[in-house]
Amino acid sequence: MNPYLRFDLDFILRHVPDFGPAILMTLGVFFTSLVAAFVGGVLLAIARQIRGPLCWAATVYIELMRNTPSLLHLFFVFFGLPLIGIVWSPFVCGVVALSAQHAAFLAEIIRGAIQMLSRQQREAGWALGLLPGKVMRYIILPQACRNSIPAVGNQSVLLLHDTALVSAIGIVEIMLTARSLAERSAASFEMFVTIGVIYLALSSVLSLSTGFLERYYAFER
């Protein structure tokens, strides 16, 4: 075995406390982005149901966001917008960039779930005298959201992993903490194994809670 390669467990244990705030920061970026992306996604999905300019705007936005890389959005918001006088903190930039793209992904998931519901559900609502907006709000969206829980859960795991990108604009989350520790020592291998385990643990919790939500909101068909 290469004598320079040894696994320094002590190094990891010494730096465990450094990862406390890092994990909190990652979770902060993640949850804020998730909520913003979900709200945005639902609004975009609804906009795509209504014929007219709003639908067009939503479609263009979704295609633009889906077909360009997240890192580009991040740099655009962080380095680009200040040129036209919009200066946000790195945290805000990170949340805006991540939720901008994930809103587009979630919009497509929710739109699919809305279209999966039969037209008959809508007609049942209309026939009772409900206006289209109320049919959407009380009959279609609640069912579409429940049906899309597995796919949204999957998307949120991707979002969690995308939070590593915000290390590029200097947000001290898990990835940046690991990188700076690795640069200050020779323990790159140890650091990246460590954060691999952390991301794995966080993702697993996320998947488990998705499964829980799925069962909680299940209904007989």
Binding site: Q120, Q121, A124, I139, P142, Q143, R146, F219, R221
Partner: peptide, 10 residues
Amino acid sequence: VFQNFNLFPH
């Protein structure tokens, strides 16, 4: 009233 009931399953 419809052929396929169309109750709201949620």
